[in-house]
Simulated scan of single mutants.
Amino acid sequence: MPGSRLDDEDRRRIAAWLTEGLGYAEIARRLGRPTSTISREVARNGGPGGYRANHAQQATERRARRRRPGAPPRAPAATDAYGRDAAAVLAFAEDFAALMVQIGLPPMAGRVLAHLITTDSGSLTSADLVRKLQVSPASISKAIGYLEGLDMVRRERDPRRRRERYLIGDDVWLRAWTASARKNTMWADTARRGVRIFGAGTLAGARLNEMARFFGRLSANMAGGPGQAAVNDMLAVLAALVHAGEPLTAGQLATALGWHPDRVTESLRNAAGYPDISDPIALQTLESGAYSVTARRHRLTPAQRQALDGHRRCTPD
């Protein structure tokens, strides 16, 4: 039961699941306990690589006997070099790792990141991590490679000991945020390329277009959005399409506006990626590769659009 003490059967399950390589968060979920309960239990009884169910049970019984009236006072908790409760420090690191796993990191990468963050120096060697986490060097190497891909960890050669140290800088979250924004931009660009291939009028093209808009907005919001000059260029391109009254290619827009083609391309990309700025006008990419504008559909009800379409058909040329 959650809140009750761990019993012998619980400890046997913990030992078996640790052998299988399960993390503290998953073990806690299976037992219906807080992750901190499992991390403290393992930390005070040999760590992930030395936990034995029978030894842990015996140690718990000894502690219970010492807490009875008339028993000698309990020995002080083990502390680290800074006088902090070592078990509490380890428990926090494992809780932090569980949070990282919940937001998408692989379990071992989450544990490595948590221990780097909670180490005062902000750096550890592979041997340090192997000792702390009781796992193989290959597992550490794989986790470090994953975190490097997210720009969250970097390597530094230790010339005195001729080995690498893994570091986490003060700007780790900024670098992770920037890397995530770049990936969102790649998603948006790929989706836009799909729209050009499948055609905006097809179901696949419409789906990809929504994907491009979503990731474009997400990337822009993470990056802080376009500057005022970029917004002015975007609105000028949309105004040009409204004024022309017919689809135009990027090359035709560049000629008409007297701009470099790259400037037009960037403005069209912003128009697609920031629909809230261009509202109530929406940019359309046609199968021919040309661009046109239309009203944002959510601004009008189906009945209003139908009435306006009928009015347009009845209006003489």
Score class of each variant (00 low, 15 high):
Pro2Tyr: 02
Ser4Asp: 11
Arg5Met: 09
Asp8Asn: 12
Glu9Ile: 10
Ile14Ala: 07
Ala16Ile: 02
Ala16Val: 03
Leu18Met: 05
Leu18Tyr: 09
Leu22His: 11
Ala25Thr: 00
Arg29Tyr: 09
Arg30Asp: 09
Gly32Ser: 07
Arg33Gln: 08
Pro34Phe: 05
Thr35Pro: 01
Thr37Lys: 03
Arg40His: 10
Val42Pro: 12
Val42Asn: 06
Asn45Glu: 05
Gly46Val: 10
Gly50Glu: 08
Gly50Val: 04
Tyr51His: 06
Arg52Gly: 05
Ala56Gly: 05
Ala56Phe: 04
Thr60Trp: 11
Arg62Phe: 10
Arg66Glu: 14
Arg68Val: 02
Arg68Asp: 07
Gly70His: 01
Ala71Phe: 04
Ala75Ser: 15
Asp80Thr: 04
Gly83Tyr: 13
Arg84Ala: 14
Ala87Glu: 12
Ala91Pro: 06
Phe92His: 15
Glu94Asp: 12
Asp95Phe: 01
Phe96Leu: 15
Ala97Gly: 01
Val101Gln: 13
Gly104Tyr: 02
Leu105Val: 09
Pro106Trp: 01
Met108Leu: 12
Ala109Ser: 15
Gly110Cys: 07
Val112Asn: 02
Ala114Arg: 02
His115Ser: 06
Ile117Asn: 06
Gly122Trp: 03
Ser126Leu: 07
Leu133Gly: 00
Val135Gly: 02
Ala138Tyr: 03
Ser139Val: 09
Ser141Gln: 10
Asp151Ser: 13
Met152Thr: 10
Met152Phe: 00
Val153Arg: 02
Glu156Ile: 10
Arg157Cys: 03
Asp158Phe: 09
Asp158Tyr: 06
Pro159Val: 08
Pro159Leu: 01
Arg163Phe: 08
Glu164Tyr: 14
Tyr166Met: 10
Tyr166Pro: 04
Leu167Phe: 03
Ile168Asn: 00
Val172Gln: 08
Trp173Lys: 12
Trp177Pro: 00
Ser180Leu: 13
Ala181Glu: 13
Arg182Ile: 03
Trp187His: 13
Trp187Thr: 03
Ala188Asp: 00
Thr190Gly: 06
Arg192Met: 12
Gly194Ile: 13
Val195Asn: 05
Ile197Glu: 13
Leu208Ala: 10
Met211His: 13
Ala212His: 01
Arg213Asn: 01
Phe214Gly: 01
Ser219Gly: 15
Asn221Asp: 11
Gly224Val: 06
Pro226Cys: 00
Ala229Gly: 11
Ala230Pro: 07
Val231Lys: 04
Asn232Cys: 04
Met234Ala: 11
Ala236Arg: 11
Ala244Gln: 10
Gly245Pro: 07
Glu246Thr: 15
Leu248His: 10
Thr255Asn: 11
His260Gln: 11
Pro261Gln: 14
Pro261Tyr: 13
Arg269Gln: 13
Asn270Lys: 06
Ala271Tyr: 09
Gly273Cys: 11
Tyr274Thr: 12
Ile277Thr: 05
Ser278Tyr: 00
Ser278Arg: 09
Leu286Tyr: 07
Glu287Thr: 15
Ala290Leu: 07
Ala290Cys: 13
Ser292Leu: 10
Thr294Pro: 01
Arg296Tyr: 01
Arg297Phe: 08
His298Leu: 14
Arg299Asn: 12
Thr301Gly: 11
Pro302Asn: 00
Pro302Tyr: 01
Ala303Pro: 09
Gln306Met: 04
Ala307Glu: 12
Asp309Glu: 13
Gly310Lys: 15
Arg312Gly: 04
Arg312Phe: 13
Arg313Phe: 14
Arg313Val: 14
Pro316Leu: 00
Asp317Pro: 06
